[in-house]
């Protein structure tokens, strides 16, 4: 499909500016990456409510927790790999366990970070955050959804993790599309297979659905932008209809969206399933598009997986 591309980071900055304007309880923290995460825009507009903690992610999360339990709604940003891995215990102890009202909005998630290579490519962050009680995990599909997700987490009381990418991503929703935490949306209806995805893999699944249609296969595309709490109702309704499922995520297939979906289906409605995502390995340097191909995050991979699960359906 011919896509229009949008920046999730730019929409994050826009949303923060809008929220900051309306709510004086909103404060923003960053760890020396504000020009990359774009929290710098908030910093310019509301300098008294922005705190740079320097290159110190553990302290970032602890300070955020202290502000949050004092009544502030706190956004804490850095790259996804540092925002989750470098300070996981701080998030667990000082944010998730005490239910501190901190919104971790991480950018540069996934393989499409590109040239920086494996050290900077967070392919485990959904897994790390999903494992924590009280923590919500949201992976917006595009810029418009990133804007809505940021506004929604500001209204929710409790810890949230919002995962954004570095590169511009295809626009698969519109400014008018509904968005609700914990609610998946059917972006394209179908009857033969459910393609359940999050982040920019939603666009990849829509491409796959197009090519499957040429082969006479009707694919349903589910935008599971909230990975936790998972919209079990929408998932089951779709899979009951189609009888099989392919998940797709720009993340390791170990303990990401695919695992969350498998956990529900295995216990409530076993169905043929395949997971598209990075295998149990680290990434590497390269152009975003090249990396998506190399690690199988493509419409072709989703389509062939769809055909396979359809074949495996019991007749």
């Amino acid at each position: 499909m011919k896509w229009v591309y949008t920046s999730q980071r730019k929409e994050y900055a826009n949303a923060l500016l809008d929220i900051g304007q309306k709510r004086t309880d909103v404060v923003v923290l960053d760890a020396d990456l504000s020009s990359s995460t774009r929290t710098s825009e908030f910093a310019k507009k509301f300098p008294e409510r922005f705190f740079n903690v320097g290159i110190a992610e553990q302290n970032l999360m602890g300070t955020a927790a202290g502000l949050a339990v004092s009544g502030k709604t706190v956004f804490a940003s850095t790259f996804a790999v540092f925002a989750t891995g470098r300070c996981w215990d701080q998030i667990r102890q000082s944010i998730a366990y005490p239910n501190s009202n901190v919104k971790i909005v991480a950018t540069h998630a996934g393989i499409t970070v590109g040239g920086d290579g494996a050290s900077h490519q967070a392919l485990e962050d959904i897994a790390l955050m999903r494992a924590l009680p009280n923590m919500y995990v949201i992976v917006p599909a595009d810029g418009a959804e990133a804007y809505k997700a940021v506004k929604a987490v500001a209204e929710h009381v409790g810890p949230c993790y919002v995962r954004l990418g570095r590169s511009d991503v295809p626009m698969v929703t519109t400014v008018d599309s509904p968005f609700e935490i914990g609610r998946a949306t059917i972006i394209r209806e179908g009857t033969d297979v459910s393609l359940v995805s999050c982040g920019q893999m939603v666009a990849v699944c829509l491409d796959a659905a197009e090519s499957l249609q040429v082969k006479g296969i009707s694919a349903e595309v589910v935008n599971m932008s909230t990975v936790k709490p998972l919209d079990v109702e929408t998932l089951l309704r779709s899979v009951r209809k189609t009888g099989c499922v392919v998940t797709a995520e720009e993340h390791s297939i170990r303990s990401g969206l695919g695992s969350a979906v498998a956990c529900v289906l295995a216990q409530q409605y076993p169905a043929p399933m395949k997971m598209v995502g990075t295998p149990d390995c680290f990434g590497e340097s390269g152009e975003s598009a090249e990396l998506m191909c190399r690690y199988g995050l493509t419409a072709e991979e989703v389509s062939s997986s769809a055909e396979e699960v359809i074949r495996r359906k019991r007749t």
């Binding site: 404060v27 705190f51 553990q58 302290n59 999360m61 602890g62 300070t63 955020a64 927790a65 202290g66 502000l67 949050a68 339990v69 004092s70 009544g71 502030k72 701080q90 102890q93 000082s94």
Partner: peptide, 14 residues
């Protein structure tokens, strides 16, 4: 090792 960061956050909020 986490308390002082949290105390600082409370100090900033105050």
């Amino acid at each position: 090792g986490q308390g002082l960061s949290v105390a600082n956050g409370m100090g900033l909020a105050a």
